[in-house]
Design a protein around this nucleic acid. Sequence first.
DNA 1: CAGGATCCGTAACGATACTG
DNA 2: CAGTATCGTTACGGATCCTG
Lengths: 136, 136
Amino acid sequence: MTVSDYFSNTAAPSSSDTLNRVGCPSREILDHVTSRWGVLILAALLERSYRFSELRRRIGGISEKMLAETLRALERDGFVHRDAQPVIPPHVDYSLTPLGREVGEQVWALTQWVERQVPTVFKARDAYDAARAKTG
Amino acid sequence: MTVSDYFSNTAAPSSSDTLNRVGCPSREILDHVTSRWGVLILAALLERSYRFSELRRRIGGISEKMLAETLRALERDGFVHRDAQPVIPPHVDYSLTPLGREVGEQVWALTQWVERQVPTVFKARDAYDAARAKTG
DNA sequence: CAGGATCCGTAACGATACTG
DNA sequence: CAGTATCGTTACGGATCCTG
């Protein structure tokens, strides 16, 4: 499937032949899994299942709000399974669904690829900045 | 390489063993290529090279500012090649570097995967919403 | 413990006007 | 044509307080 095929078959609010499909559902889903916290949550849950506060500590720096919101979005999309045991105090386990494991691994692969290219990217940035300093 | 290995070897401003490496360079690079406009620009340039305004029309709905900013970020990272011919009126071609083609294809693969799962995700959402309507 | 509700600041984004 | 500069808005994210 080509890029052109891909983007021409779905209704676009703006124009008919545009890459930018506003409000496109796949774009929204992609945002959930590639968002700042989405990536980290998927990565953590790729290790094992976690409880809410446990996950919060594991990730570090994430607010309760964002953890809850991102988890809910991922759960609603079918990537995360929420297992709430009706005990007091509450005990809730979060884990990846098979579908979630699939995306998680792909996002994770991309993350690793990017990480491997960091030195290369830095060299490119140095070259870019140097060229800019000269010509200005 | 495991998730744990991956996130434990870089300096983290907050804590030492956290998934969240604030200001992490790979995270910034990942943002550039998975951002709303980054994804679309990479997709377009996967087809062929484009001139600035041409690219703007091809993507649709992107402002000049965002196109310029995103292109500059991708160029600086070494993913996009900018060929400015010194003529009047200016003629500038944007294309992918080999490195850019690599990320582009990966991001594109992820986008396609997500697109294929849209029906599945929608079913999951329906189930989620239905369960919420009852208990919620 | 697991979250929901609320308030608030910032930074990202869009629209517009202008320039080489 | 290919941008840069500026400004106004908005939506995202963080901090805090509260509840079952």
